[in-house]
């Protein structure tokens, strides 16, 4: 009886978030993604212009922790394209919303990705488009916001992804369930010393699978009362 009660309380504690969450890295972490786009400046993205991003994955966490981007011959690339500007708000906070847009994450056994200057060029984005797609999806929202008051030209970018394909699509949601949305997020900078000519922003970010969590604050008293 006592064992049954302990199990029940442990399960309830998990369900109600009473167990301290342990650290687990992002599902997909990168450094960096570089963005570029014709006619776009760091503080102005004219209506209708397209934002493109290329990057390399630096680490994987749960539920993709079985992938290791630091062991050859595997290279994991990120390609973001088709984000169409809805125009940029006036400063000093330059907010740009984008419509559309897609993302592809690929596994390549012939590593060749390099952030060649002044894209598009012979290597960008093509070096980031080869290999096997492990995850593909479409953005349901995306924005950049740049702070015109910062000393290091910083800001952030974020978007939500609806996953649609790739060999690892089943990992984006619960077993047997629908894919969870991906949250693409992180910091932006266009501080010249960390930039490559021809690119707009350097993005340090990650993607997590933003599964809904049926979690609610509670007390031991409430938990116990449910089983009395």
């Amino acid at each position: 009886m006592r064992a049954w009660t302990t199990t029940l309380i442990a399960a309830a504690a998990l369900a109600f978030g009473l167990v301290a969450p342990a650290a687990a890295g992002p599902a997909i972490d990168w450094d960096p993604v570089f963005f570029y786009g014709s006619g776009i400046t760091p503080t102005n993205s004219p209506l209708g212009s397209q934002l493109i991003g290329v990057g390399t994955v630096s680490s994987f966490g749960p539920p993709l922790e079985f992938l290791n981007p630091n062991i050859g011959p595997y290279e994991y690339t990120i390609y973001v394209f088709g984000l169409i500007s809805q125009g940029t708000s006036p400063g000093p906070f330059y907010l740009t919303n984008y419509s559309g847009g897609s993302i592809e994450i690929r596994e390549d056994t012939t590593p060749d990705a390099s952030f060649d200057a002044n894209p598009p060029n012979a290597g960008v984005p093509s070096d980031f488009q080869d290999g096997t797609p492990i995850l593909t999806g479409n953005f349901t929202s995306f924005f950049t916001q740049i702070d015109g008051l910062s000393a290091h030209n910083t800001g952030n970018a974020e978007g939500n992804i609806q996953w649609t394909g790739g060999t690892l699509l089943p990992y984006t949601g619960p077993a047997g369930g629908e894919p969870c949305p991906g949250l693409f997020t992180g910091g932006l900078t266009y501080y010249p010393p960390v930039m490559i000519p021809g690119y707009l922003y350097r993005h340090d970010g990650k993607i997590d699978f933003n599964c809904p969590t049926p979690n609610a604050p509670s007390t031991w008293g409430k938990v116990k009362s449910q089983y009395r």
């Binding site: 000393a151 952030n156 974020e158 997020t185 900078t189 997590d208 933003n210």
Partner: peptide
Amino acid sequence: WTFAGATSNSTG
């Protein structure tokens, strides 16, 4: 220097 992005939109 250091910089970071911050979000309150993660469910985690």
